[in-house]
Design a protein around this nucleic acid. Sequence first.
DNA 1: TCAAATCATTACTTTTATGTCAAGATTTGA
DNA 2: TCAAATCTTGACATAAAAGTAATGATTTGA
Lengths: 154, 154
Amino acid sequence: MKISAQEEYGLRCLVQLALLKEGETLTLTQIAEREGISVANAGKLMWLLSKAGFVKATRGTKGGYCLARPASEIKLSEVIKVLEEKGIENHCENFTGVLDICVHKEDCGIRSVIVGLHEIIRNVLSQITLAELIAPEKMVDQKFHQIQRIHRIF
Amino acid sequence: MKISAQEEYGLRCLVQLALLKEGETLTLTQIAEREGISVANAGKLMWLLSKAGFVKATRGTKGGYCLARPASEIKLSEVIKVLEEKGIENHCENFTGVLDICVHKEDCGIRSVIVGLHEIIRNVLSQITLAELIAPEKMVDQKFHQIQRIHRIF
DNA sequence: TCAAATCATTACTTTTATGTCAAGATTTGA
DNA sequence: TCAAATCTTGACATAAAAGTAATGATTTGA
């Protein structure tokens, strides 16, 4: 169970844009620099995020990227959904082994657990916005544990 | 955020063994057949699970695999820990881009969220045993939602 | 108008994860 | 003892993910 490179770096690029003041933009080169990734890679990620409507791109001199809507209105769950390649919807299609169809199609305890876990993850991520993510780590941690406390997970 | 093939299939092989009666065993061929994966792949997975002490293997005619301890004493969290290649411990080492060290080493909201999510996942999985996983999906689902209800996640 | 700066798009390369193969070791039973 | 059945192990091949490169399109401003 882990986060993919695309999810991690994509999210981080968005964080950079969230840090900007109203009206400012960042070029691919600047984003790449600030995140320690290649310009080509940043380009691909921003293209995805642009297609998905999270960022607005303007070309030409003075061009660059900025968020398409306020950071406080972008939930992490939405971002992750776009950056992951295959959603949980197709859990059963993903693990069919050498067959065309998963042998557990009928009744599957694992599916319940995996699908349930994804529900929890989605739920938690839907309670955190980009805006909250750019606060100092201490604050994010606090917010996270507040979510956990409210829901009595621990 | 997704489960890897190794985690999925490894878990499923264990489930097959959990379904056995006391004293019964399954050969690699049988496991492969029942899970719809190749014998070679089953061999690799069982090797991992054997090294980790979840299953007991006996060689030779009449040989095969069985659980090394009762299914009710094997938590999913332990199994996943063994089957995933990199734990969450090294989140920061995993995403350093083109640099040697992640640019967010100092203070990182994303890290908080990802590490927190992994805590939740581990916690939930530690409350489910192999024995519970082999019940009809309906029951597993119930158990899962019971965990959610107890902890007021939703 | 044209060159420079920038994003857009697709194809390609590299790396990593997954899956396979083959040779070896152990056990059983004839 | 020996052949058959089985697991063990490490090397290898394949597929998927990640990352790069190259070419094209748009905008700005001299």
